Simulated assay, not measured.
Amino acid sequence: MVIEFSKYHGLGNDFILIDNRHSAEPIVTPEQAIQICDRHFGIGGDGVIFALPGKEGTDYTMRIYNSDGSEPEMCGNGIRCLAKFIADLEGKSEVNKTYKIHTLAGVITPQMQANGYVKVDMGTPFLTAAEIPTTLSTAEDKVIAQPLEVAGKTWDVTCVSTGNPHCITFVENSDAIALEQIGTLFEHHPVFPQRINTEFIQVVKPDYMKMRVWERGAGITLACGTGACASVVAGVLNSKCDRFCTVELPGGCLQIEWSATNNRVYMTGAAQQVFQGKYSL
């Protein structure tokens, strides 16, 4: 089988986009997605994203397989790339054009901006232990600055779900974290029954933070949109940052707002096509 694809990235978080509008199910399997994402023997990417027909009144449906074949509920950088891919498929570049996209995390609404940027209404964050999910909890059933032992060290962690689960810890120097060693230990810690994405956050000033991330199912990536959103929520809950904050990731910056008016999180960042091609499975 030969599939046509487009390669996009959001701040270096890169994805293979497939036009799947003719079928309600992804046209490649998780095992094939692993092959496609291989950076030496495939196209290379952090995941494969499918643009499927909309359902339940939405314009499109998003499905995504990570580079390890697992399927996350949603992906922040990925949905910006998907919105740009859809606009390119439709041959439209309207500023302020919005799409209602059905995901496993609910309906997400990206809005096209000028200069290749996309603003995404990420919805309201989930804060209870059951919603994340994690077995860590407090009397209020929220995990805010709770101790967690990983690799012989106690970390204060805050857990937030922004459609998929995140564990955030604040550090003095994010660059000093041995992410390649410790990331997988967080991801597979027994207190996270569905595994976890982990963000290591350095607060530079109240409206600017630096972030490094270990993504569930993908490992070290240059950016994570849902993680940036979760990190700002965690920063506000811990009185470490403002509700509107720039988050610097290795691949670039995202603008994140946790609205005090409606409790919704908004993410704005770039999405860019890299190339198109055909791939033989």
Rank of each mutant, 00 (worst) to 15 (best):
L82E: 13
I18G: 04
F50P: 12
V95K: 11
G12C: 04
G47Y: 09
I18F: 08
A114S: 15
S67F: 05
G76K: 03
K92C: 15
I34Q: 05
R80E: 05
S23L: 02
H22A: 07
K55Y: 11
S67T: 09
I16N: 04
M112W: 10
D68T: 13
S67N: 08
F41M: 08
Q32Y: 11
Q111H: 10
T98M: 14
G91A: 10
N13Y: 02
D14M: 08
E94N: 10
A114R: 10
N66H: 01
S23E: 08
F50Q: 07
S70Q: 05
F41D: 03
G10Q: 02
G54A: 11
I27M: 12
D59E: 14
G45C: 01
Y60P: 04
E90Y: 14
D68C: 15
A51I: 09
E25M: 02
E25C: 03
G54P: 06
L52V: 08
V95I: 13
H9T: 09
D14L: 01
S23I: 05
V107F: 10
A105H: 13
E71I: 03
Q32R: 11
Q113W: 13
I36W: 00
N66Q: 00
R21M: 07
G106H: 09
R80M: 08
R21E: 04
A83E: 13
N77M: 06
Q35N: 05
P110S: 14
H22L: 11
G91D: 15
G12N: 06
P110H: 13
G47Q: 02
N96F: 11
L17I: 11
T103Y: 05
A87W: 08
I27K: 09
E94P: 03
I36V: 06
R39L: 08
P110I: 11
V95T: 13
G10V: 05
E31I: 06
N20P: 07
T58I: 14
V107N: 14
H40W: 06
